[in-house]
Each structure stands twice: as C-alpha cells, then as structure tokens.
C-alpha cells in the first residue's frame, strides 16, 4: 500500500540517533511538531490559501477601519451633482471612482462601509453556530442514549427548515434589523450542520484507543471530553465552519437583497444590489459593483475553507 509507505515516511523521521538511545533510535527532526503546526506548514505552501488570506486580511482591515480607505461618507447623498454618475475608473480610491447611485451616494464609499456588515455577519454567525453546534454535538455524541436521541431529533427538525425560507420568516418579525438581529436569526437556523459534524467526530473519537486508555486510567468525564475528545474533534469542525462562513455572507446578502436582511442605516452590499436592480440599464455599475464584491468575498472565504480542509483533513495524514 502506498499510503502505508507514505505514512511511514511522514511519521518516522528517523535519522541515525546517538548510540546512547539504543536500542531505539529517535526521530531526528529538531523540534516538536504538533499536528496543528504541521497543518500550518502545509497551509503556508498552498497558493490558494495565500491568495484568499491576502483578500480576507484586506476585507478585515476594511471592515475595521473603513476611514482608511475613503474620506467620503456612505450616507452623504448629493442628488444635485452626482445622480447616477458613471464610474471614473482612472481615479483610484477617490469617492467618484466607482460612480454614484441613484441617491447620489458614492458607490465606492458604500462598498468600503458595507464590508463591516458582511464580515460581522459571516464571522458572528460562524462563531455562534460553532459554539452551539459543538456543545450540542459533543453532548449528543458523548453521552448517547436518550439524550442523543432527543438532541438528534431536534437537530433534524432544524435541518428540515429551508435555511433562507426560515430566515425570511424569522427576520420578518423584526422591523429594525441590525447586524446582531441577522446574526441571531442565521445562527438560530444554522447550527445543525456543525452539530452533526461534531456528533459524528465525537462518536468516532470516543471509541479510539487513547480515549479507552484514559478511561482505564480512571480519568473524569470532564478530562476525557476536554483533553482527549475536543482537541481531536476540532479539526473537522473548523473545516466545516470556515467553509460555511462564505455561505453565511452570501445568505446575508441574499436576505438583504430580498429586503428582509439588514435595514438602513446599516450599509449592506445585498441591500445595494437590491436598490441597483432598478437601474440596471441606466446605471449598471450600481448593481454590478456590489454584486462583484459579494462574490469576491464569498469566494475568498470558500477558498480559505478549502485550503484549511486540505491542511486539516485527517485522511491526508
């Protein structure tokens, strides 16, 4: 089997050891390498990761300090001078760079300020679903029995709700929808995927010999859960979470586009796509620019998630 050989190669890093350690010679590599550091080592060499990481860092900075990128305000409407003004492609980073929308607001400024909502929703939902999903999955997977039966049925019920449709219904109940409301709504509906992954991972790991060994030593449930099971279940959870992140950003844009996502005064790319829709023929840039921005962002996070999966996937080691 080639896997066997390759495994041997990656595991036994044995250069001839000093005679003192006989009969077994030791692994030669100079320092301790945890699986996390190995994954990081792989990640750094992955061009997909590098490209997506650069884009994501750029987006994060934009979300945190939008004023670094533009002096214009996304809410200053100058109908008199800039109504549907076309982009000035040559004037990089100036307020008029990407043109103005039908209210005379700078599209560039709105792109810059819209990043915050997208990133916050994406990251916020991911953090919430990861916490909820991991807790539910771990409890169901570890304790099993009726607790698992109940939690798994609850998970199934939530899984049965179409994501966007469910979010439409939930969000319709709110008049003012801030970033936090959207995060709560999406997290409420989205935790099931992580819960299932976590449950599956915990069930597998629970049977691993090292967990049995810890039980044989008399380790407490707490210790087994947090020292043995959680660190090993984390990799698949992180993979699913990073890939899902892009999806949540897309979901926010979709909901805002449908008019049930973020409401003014929050600047949202999805909302801008919606308002640009009517002007498709007269001022196409008001539709295209925010759409492209949503795509780039979602794509960056998907690529990032893919790279993380390649580095962490246990099947590859």
């Amino acid at each position: 089997m080639p896997d066997k050989t390759v495994e041997k190669v990656t595991t036994a890093t044995g250069e001839p050891a000093p005679a003192v350690v006989a009969p077994d010679s030791g692994p030669g590599a100079a320092k301790a390498r945890s699986l996390w550091s190995d994954a990081w080592h792989d990640l750094r060499r992955n061009p997909l990761f590098l490209i997506s990481a650069v884009l994501i860092v750029f987006l994060l900075v934009m979300a945190a300090w939008p004023s670094l990128f533009t002096s214009a305000s996304p809410r200053d409407a100058d109908l008199a001078n800039h109504f549907r003004e076309a982009p000035h492609w040559g004037n990089f980073f100036s307020p008029e760079w990407l043109g103005y929308d039908l209210q005379g607001r700078s599209v560039y400024a709105r792109i810059v300020y819209g990043a915050r909502a997208s990133i916050m929703v994406g990251v916020g939902v991911t953090v919430c679903v990861t916490i909820i999903g991991t807790v539910v999955g771990m409890i169901a997977g570890y304790f099993g029995g009726w607790l698992d039966a109940v939690l798994s049925r609850v998970t199934d019920v939530f899984l049965g709700i179409p994501f966007i449709l469910g979010a439409l219904v939930v969000l319709n109940a709110f008049d003012q929808r801030s970033v936090w409301v959207v995060i709560m709504a999406l997290a409420f509906l989205g935790w099931t995927q992580i819960a299932r992954v976590a449950r599956g991972a915990v069930i597998t790991i629970k049977q691993a010999d090292y967990v049995v060994a810890a039980r044989a030593l008399g380790a407490s449930t707490y210790r087994i859960m947090f020292k043995h099971i959680l660190p090993n279940a984390l990799a698949p959870i992180i993979v699913v979470a990073t890939i899902a992140l892009g999806g949540y950003i897309a979901a926010e844009a979709t909901l805002s586009f449908l008019g049930v996502g973020l409401t003014e005064p929050t600047v949202s790319w999805g909302g801008d796509v919606n308002s640009g829709r009517a002007d498709l023929r007269v001022a196409p840039h008001t539709l295209i620019v925010p759409s492209v921005m949503v795509s780039i962002t979602v794509l960056s996070f998907l690529m990032f998630g893919d790279a993380v999966r390649n580095a962490l996937d246990p099947k590859l080691r």
Binding site: T13, A17, V21, D24, A32, R33
Partner: peptide, 17 residues
C-alpha cells in the same frame, strides 16, 4: 529505551515500535 529529551514531541513523530 527512549531518549528522555523527546518529552515534548508528538506521537506522529515516532515509529510504531
């Protein structure tokens, strides 16, 4: 019969034996 300096290494850095 293992080198005591290996205390900070991870299992995958060792061979089966």
């Amino acid at each position: 019969g293992l080198n005591p300096e290996y205390i900070n290494r991870y299992p995958h850095q060792f061979s089966g034996g």
